[in-house]
Amino acid sequence: MSASVRNILYQVVAGVIVLAVAWYLVGNTLDNLARQNIATGFGYLDLEAAFGISEHMIDYAPTDDYARALLVGILNTVKVAVIGILLATLLGLVVGIMRLSPNWLLARLAAVYIHAFRNVPVLLQLVFWAAFIRASFPSPREVGQEGAAIFLTNRGIYFPWPELGDAGAATLVGLAVGLLGWFFLRRWALARQMTTGRSFPHLWAGLGLALAFTVLGWLLGGAHLVLDMPALAGFNFRGGARMTPEFAAVLFGLTIYTSAFIAEVVRSGIQAVPRGQWEAAESLGLRRGQMMRLIILPQAMRVIVPPLTNQYLNLTKNSSLAVAVGYPDLVSISNTTMNQTGQAIEAISIFMAIYLALSILTSVFMNWFNARMALVER
């Protein structure tokens, strides 16, 4: 028997063994559930949930089914993950650059920040922020209202929120058109700089373009704008927008914890750029900010992006710890579903599949971005 045939035979035998073990485990599980009179399947998703959710991005009532309750949990998880990734990236970038600053105080402060938050378990940080918010901020009735627009209370952070009415859709369309114009303006500015050597302030021009189209869309939509202000009514504030203590604790904890790791990724990426690139930039008379933005960071990104992807994935998966502080994320709502229906395997399978899908989407996007940043041989 040849080596290739023998290898194929070994793989077939291994595959048969794996399938047999899986078949036994599934069959044994179904038999045990049947003996306990526990129905299997996902039909329970159509049943009435009969429990409230304190925070939801879409309309939800206890009379809705379990499928809608799970959708609320998914959206809450995605909201924390997306906002946390954006804030952690910005904060990590700043702290990572500070870590290499020639200013002794800035560099030491960045080092203390990184070592302090990176070496404390993220779960403890979430619990700390939740306790800090509830203990440090006053109750709504103890907050003075004279001349204030933002209120920090132990029931949440209340702030004004614009209501655009019928002009909302047109405003969003204008914003989308402005951002698209900014994208093409940036491409033109970079191509022009590569051919002529002359720079164009595409950042400020793009911001102005996006703002102009947004205002234009708002005007064409009817120019409706009402600022909904929070006001004390009874024992709590009404109106405006609210950031709950649970969401704030999860967001602050995940952002600060992940930003400490991102700062070290940024530092290592910058240090991977050859010293000659710094010297060449200095010989051109560029300021340190220009050197970092135009020469160093674009090259460092090729080293930064792969480990940065891991940090994004970690932040998304660490959001499952939000259940410890009472934030109604996917895991929290799934736990409630399991307790009410007994469908533990199905509920766990659903949120495992959701986290897998979020991780795959993040990896696909970051791999695409990494390919865009890679050096192209000529």
Rank of each mutant, 00 (worst) to 15 (best):
H224I: 13
M243K: 01
E48A: 14
G181D: 08
N335T: 12
A260S: 15
R242P: 02
W204H: 04
Y312N: 13
V303Q: 06
G15D: 00
F261C: 00
L254S: 06
N367Y: 04
M57W: 15
L284H: 02
D329H: 07
G181S: 09
Y10I: 14
A223G: 08
P328H: 07
R187D: 08
F235D: 13
N32M: 13
I8H: 10
L313P: 04
E282A: 12
G206C: 06
L109W: 12
A263L: 10
G208I: 00
F365E: 02
E142M: 10
G174E: 08
I354G: 08
D329E: 15
T258D: 03
G208T: 02
Q299A: 15
Y312A: 14
V18I: 13
G197E: 15
P298D: 15
I262R: 12
A20Y: 09
V173C: 08
N119V: 10
I345S: 04
P102G: 05
V325M: 07
I38M: 00
G73P: 00
Q125F: 12
A189Y: 01
W104H: 14
F365W: 01
V323E: 14
A130C: 11
G217W: 03
A69M: 07
R372P: 06
S332T: 12
A322N: 02
H56I: 06
G240P: 06
A149C: 07
P121K: 01
S349I: 09
P274N: 14
L330K: 11
M291K: 14
W188D: 08
R134M: 09
N335H: 13
K317G: 11
M373Q: 08
S320L: 12
W368D: 04
H56Y: 11
I354H: 05
Y312V: 12
V18T: 02
L109T: 14
N119Y: 08
N370S: 06
G342V: 03
N103M: 01
L90S: 08
E146T: 02
T77I: 12
L211P: 03
N314R: 05
R293I: 08
F213I: 00
A22S: 10
V80E: 02
P201Q: 11
A357H: 06
S199M: 15
A324W: 08
A3K: 15
R288Q: 14
G174N: 09
I17C: 04
G285L: 08
M352C: 11
V95S: 02
L190A: 01
P298H: 14
S2L: 01
G165A: 13
L33Q: 08
R288E: 12
A61E: 01
A210H: 06
L356H: 03
I133G: 11
